[in-house]
């Protein structure tokens, strides 16, 4: 259920034709040449392994699969990942997880 605040923001974004990530609280994923991934506006870093990185984006879970993943930066709202990216998938959030 969207709150009234979110509705106003969405409307403002559309009316001012701003990119949606400027005002809306949505995540943003930048993938550079399949070798470097920058994810902004995340909720939490769920799992880090050399073949997979799992990130909670709030309303969904981002799963990066590939090889030799190194998380070059972990900050409160941002994650940088380096490695060979094979697959980027958005998974629906499981019940019971925030």
């Amino acid at each position: 259920m969207r709150t009234w605040k979110q509705r106003v923001r969405r409307a403002a974004t559309e009316w001012l034709s701003l990119p949606p990530d400027a005002l809306l609280d949505v995540s943003r994923l930048t993938c550079l040449d399949g070798g470097q991934v920058i994810v902004e506006n995340i909720h939490s870093l769920l799992r880090v392994a050399d073949t997979a990185v799992e990130i909670d984006l709030g309303n969904s879970i981002l799963l990066l699969q590939g090889e030799g993943f190194v998380v070059t930066l972990v900050a409160e709202r941002e994650v940088h990942v380096r490695g060979v990216v094979g697959q980027i998938s958005y998974l629906p959030k499981k019940e019971g997880q925030r």
Binding site: L45, L46, V71, V74, A75, E76
Partner: peptide, 26 residues
């Protein structure tokens, strides 16, 4: 418990660099 540590640090806002994890080593 490396995963839990990373999550904890990320939630606290501690900036980590060059995180590489494989199994229970990293």
């Amino acid at each position: 418990n490396i995963q839990a540590l990373l999550l904890d640090m990320q939630q606290k806002g501690v900036v980590l660099h060059d995180v590489f994890v494989k199994g229970d080593r990293g």
